[in-house]
Each structure stands twice: as structure tokens, then as C-alpha cells.
Amino acid sequence: MMLFDVAIGLLILYFVWKIILLYLRTLEIKQVCDRYVFITGCDTGFGYLLARSLDAKGVNVIAGCLTEKGSRNLKKEASSRIKTVQLDVTDKKSVERAFELTKQYVGDKGLWGLVNNAGIMLNFCPAEWTPLKDYETESKVNLFGTIDMSLTFLPLLRMSRGRRELLGSGVTTHTIEPGGFNTNIANESKFLKILKTAYVRSDTERQNFYGGKISSYIFFVIKWYGVFINTKPQKVVDVMAHALLAKHSKNSYAVGLDATLFFGFLSWFPEWLVDRLLGWPAPDGHLCSELQNIANKKN
């Protein structure tokens, strides 16, 4: 009976702590008007929306835009407080110029947050249909661009707050893990274009190997992805803002039903079972109808 009482007591304490934690998550920092946040990839998508959202809250936003057009569009929709910087995260000199401009903007206040949002997606097809240069291009933006921005801007973050290895100085890191959201980087038409282009530039042997049941399966996934993809990217932006402005923010945020439920649910199963559930069908050497139309046009 005593063990049962202890278990009930621990369960009650757990739920009380959860309620307290939910309340603590609602608390935001005050005086955001003296906070500076740098965001990469602000031409479109999450970065564009986040820049506008933080600007509306009174945060001093420094938006890194790849193009002048992106910079102009953002300035039209934001307040006069927002600053834009033309930035290519794959270009070291561009990153350094952005850093020098940011130093001028923030002065001795430092940088409250750096949002490494810039990213591209070139691959949505069998690996053997994807040339090495595509992997290199993605890595330059998504991986090395993030690393370069983080290393370059760390001195400004240390002046304010920052990352886990600098925990003693108040530096923290937060990861956003969105599921499928309809943006320029991920949408049905783009996935279809990637798959069809990859097929055309592949050699005959690889076309035949992956062009049947495997490609039919991928087309099916794209179709249903387009049906269930989340059309409200503001949800991702809201958790980005929470990570930046909450007094007790989370270390990581999974956003979207597919990220929180589907993939979260699959994580409970052994890997061999997940592989069986999500794995591609066996190749059959016959082109699926979607690719057969492309082959007929070529001939």
C-alpha cells in the first residue's frame, strides 16, 4: 500500500510541475525595444514572417536578405525601425560585411539573438539521381552557412546572451524542428519539379532501376504531402519568437502535427519496423506513368 501511495504522490508532483512549467512558458522578457535580433533568409518564408512579427512586437530586427528585391519587399511591410542587410551565407566576405554592419547597429548592447533560418532544398528523389554538386550546394547553405554565421556573430551574442557551451555566460541554443509547411522551400510543385528533373539527367540504368514502383511511391507521397502540408507557417514563426523572447524558453520545438504526432509516434518503434513502414518498394524496372510521359516527350 505504501508503494502505491508513493507512486500517486510522485504522479501528483509531476502534474503540478507540468502546470507550473506551462505557466512559466507564457512569461516573456520585458523591454524588448532594446533587444537586437539578426535573422538570415528573410526574403521569403519563415524568415520574412519572423522579421515582421518581431518588428511588430517592438524588437530591433536586422534582416539578412539574399536579394535587393527581398530587402525592398520586407521594408515595405515593416516599420522604419527594421534594418536589412544583403547577405549570402555561403560567402565569407558577405557574412563579415553583415557582421560589421550589425556591430554598428547594436553598439554596446550586443546581439540578443541570431536566427539561422536561411536554407534550401534541392533533393527530393533517390540518392543515385542526385549529383554531388547538389549535396555540396545544400551543405554550403544549410550546414556551413549556419556554422559560419554562428562563429562570426558569437562575440556579439556574448555581449548579450548565447549558446550551451557558453552556459555560464548566459548564452543558450534553441532548435526549431518544423514538419511540412507550405513555403518556397517545400511545396508540391517544387518536389515534382525536383523529381522529374532528377530523372531526366540520370543515366538509363538508374532511370530504369528507380523509375517504376519506387518513383510511383514517391509521387504518391508528394501528392498526399500536398494534401496534408500545413498552410500556416506563422505557427513556426510563433515558436521562433517564443524561443527568443520567453523567460523560460525550450531547448527544442517540434512544430506541426506530422513532427509532433507522426514522427514522434514512430520514434517509439524499433528502427527495423520504421524502415519496413516507410521503406521504398522493390524496383520492377518499368517506368511509372508520370515518368513514362516524360520519356515519350524526349523520344
Rank of each mutant, 00 (worst) to 15 (best):
M1S: 15
L3C: 15
L3Y: 13
V6S: 13
F15A: 12
L21P: 05
L21K: 15
L24F: 06
T26R: 10
E28C: 02
I29R: 15
K30F: 10
R35M: 04
I39V: 15
T40G: 07
G41N: 08
T44L: 03
F46M: 05
F46L: 04
L49E: 11
A51Y: 03
R52G: 10
R52Y: 08
V59F: 03
N60W: 00
S71K: 07
N73D: 14
L74W: 02
K75H: 12
A78C: 10
R81G: 06
I82K: 00
S94F: 01
V95T: 11
F99N: 04
E100S: 14
Y105P: 07
V106H: 02
K109C: 11
G110N: 11
L111S: 06
L111Q: 06
A118G: 08
G119M: 01
L122G: 00
C125N: 10
P131Y: 02
E136G: 11
K140H: 09
K140Q: 14
K140S: 12
V141F: 08
N142H: 11
F144V: 11
T146C: 12
S150W: 04
L151A: 05
L151T: 07
F153W: 06
S160Y: 11
E165R: 12
L166K: 12
L166Q: 14
L166N: 15
H174Y: 10
P178K: 08
A186F: 05
F191P: 01
K196S: 01
T197V: 09
V200I: 10
G211N: 08
S215A: 14
S215I: 01
S216L: 09
F220Q: 07
K223W: 06
G226S: 03
T231P: 05
K232L: 01
D238P: 08
V239N: 01
L244N: 01
L244D: 00
L244E: 00
N251C: 13
A254P: 09
L257F: 11
L261M: 09
F262R: 14
F265N: 13
F265R: 15
P270E: 12
P270T: 07
E271D: 12
V274A: 08
G279Q: 07
G285T: 02
K297H: 05
